[in-house]
Design a protein around this nucleic acid. Sequence first.
DNA 1: TGTTAGCACCTAATAGATGAGAGTGCTAAA
DNA 2: TTTAGCACTCTCATCTATTAGGTGCTAACA
Lengths: 349, 349
Amino acid sequence: MLTERQELILKTIIQDFTQDHEPVGSKTVMKQLPIKVSSATIRNEMATLEEKGLIEKTHSSSGRIPSSEGYRYYLDNLVEPLRLPENVYDKIVYQLDRPFHQVNEIVQEAAKILSDLTNYTAFAEGPENHGVTVTGFRIVPLSNRQIMAILVTSDGNVQNQVYALPHHIHGDEIEKAVRMINDELVGKSLKEITPTLLKGLANQQIAGTHSAELLSLVEDVIKDAASEQMYVDGQINLLNNSSEKNVNDIRSLYELVDHNDLISNLMGDCEKVASPDLPVQVTLGSELPNDLLKNYSLVTARYNVGEHGEGTIALLGPTNMPYSQMIGLLEYFRNELAKKLLDYYGRFQ
Amino acid sequence: MLTERQELILKTIIQDFTQDHEPVGSKTVMKQLPIKVSSATIRNEMATLEEKGLIEKTHSSSGRIPSSEGYRYYLDNLVEPLRLPENVYDKIVYQLDRPFHQVNEIVQEAAKILSDLTNYTAFAEGPENHGVTVTGFRIVPLSNRQIMAILVTSDGNVQNQVYALPHHIHGDEIEKAVRMINDELVGKSLKEITPTLLKGLANQQIAGTHSAELLSLVEDVIKDAASEQMYVDGQINLLNNSSEKNVNDIRSLYELVDHNDLISNLMGDCEKVASPDLPVQVTLGSELPNDLLKNYSLVTARYNVGEHGEGTIALLGPTNMPYSQMIGLLEYFRNELAKKLLDYYGRFQ
DNA sequence: TGTTAGCACCTAATAGATGAGAGTGCTAAA
DNA sequence: TTTAGCACTCTCATCTATTAGGTGCTAACA
């Protein structure tokens, strides 16, 4: 429980530190505080805040910097989303206002826009495909030994893969197999289609001698389609932050960030709590399991595309980032993205 | 013109500097030199080498480092490709020995292997498609408003693109259009198919009311197929080098390296000189037009896939890299890559 | 009792001073 | 032509003030 004045001081320290990245002294706070008190009084209050673990010193006679607990208190109680300069909104709208041909193109562009605007690393994940079903599976013979497998799903997503076959398969056989695969798969959701189910198909020998081969294609393509792709952009911005610690850490960070599953997991944790109606959520590095992210924060927002599910966007930046602005940005952006996606889906109905 | 002893000294300085990255003094050279002379003699020789511009001092009483001219002399006259440890060869063979489905997958993997082995940034460009012709063009209707355009070329490459159409196009119409497009394009080389040629097709009204639309798809896909894709890997390794100069330079470097055309141009210059029969070629940063690359070197090699054309692989690393090793590596690698590609193409004949 | 002025004290950062170490160029002798 | 010897130069690490910005505590004050 903090007094109003203590909250004011904490907020001032955080905002000041966000700007200058330097410990904040009592005099500096005094100048910025709307109420008139002496620096000695502020020193007393700061001592209390330190006792409570919300701020800390870098050395015995330094100014104060916010602790993780301090940021947490700020985020839970004090932060207010900031309205952004008009031209930022314009830029978002402009960048999203292009003809996209696939959902994933839009999602990828979302990550790009976010990282461009913030100079942080940005993540975007498409709407979850819980209810997504198979609309059709095609095999297109391309040449003597090459075929393309194509899977179309009810959300309009298209997954394809070219295969070089060890030997020629006759068109009739392919056609027959595709027909039977479709009979079995169309209408099924992606999660339902397990390797076991496909094996069952193979056992029925539906597709002649090459059934096993063709079914393994199906499996591949389905796996691709079912894996929710996470798009990352602005990895390079990790450099800005990491003051000058060793190169190896940055390297590991890069790998972490590019290696989808790890970040997905982190974000997965956030998703459980966040929702499109709830405010944007911030997870501090100290609250994350990975030590590399100690000095970073993950700002996460969910967006809602109605019947098409929910997706996630996120920013990874330094712990001392301007949260008000970032939260304001994500709140606006998730709406625009949802709008764009609804618009996209609308064209297929 | 250098005496044998001078060449020996230059070589020693370069090799030593490559290892330790520190100016090399006359005593150090003396210890490593196979011939027995005093450090004073070496100092005299070094003064001569400096006069000729092949080495330089970092300050008035420091040891010497090679100048660009020194490297150039070394590369032109002294360097000898080094045989690599056996396990490196094993690794290359192992990594390339996987079932690939497209040429580009192989080329991409090549870049990855090279950057993994060297810890530098690596580039790989597929065999040039001079003689490549169109084997077939397909349009596959995916759903009410989505189609996929597929272009197959004589080198077995497949380019595809999904399109969301503003309105439904009837299957018969598509089929008719595709047939006529194929009649016109099959057998033509990619470079022959210009927008003007396509316009000509449109004017014949071959494809009914939607001809213009469909032809613009063709144009898109052809453009993609004709652009030679350059694969880059190990961008992160740029960090290792750039000691600690400002972050912005690294940022620009990243962009430079990812922005294909620029590097393509640089490599283009090299290609004119290099050939699969000629030795691996090194271009020093000082010889490149771009100032950002000042402290880097581009090591380029061409590989030869017989009738399927020639391609390029390259490494971008610090100017003081171990050239003997890198040249040895690329010489071996280009042969393995060519073998793998020949093997791949062989499967379609 | 909360607030403030004053002061002793702390620490990081900066600038100079100093000496060791590595290297050079030059001279004179072999 | 080569070499030993030596004076000289420059960097780098270390040490020593000095300064600037901050704190905590005490005692006076409203």
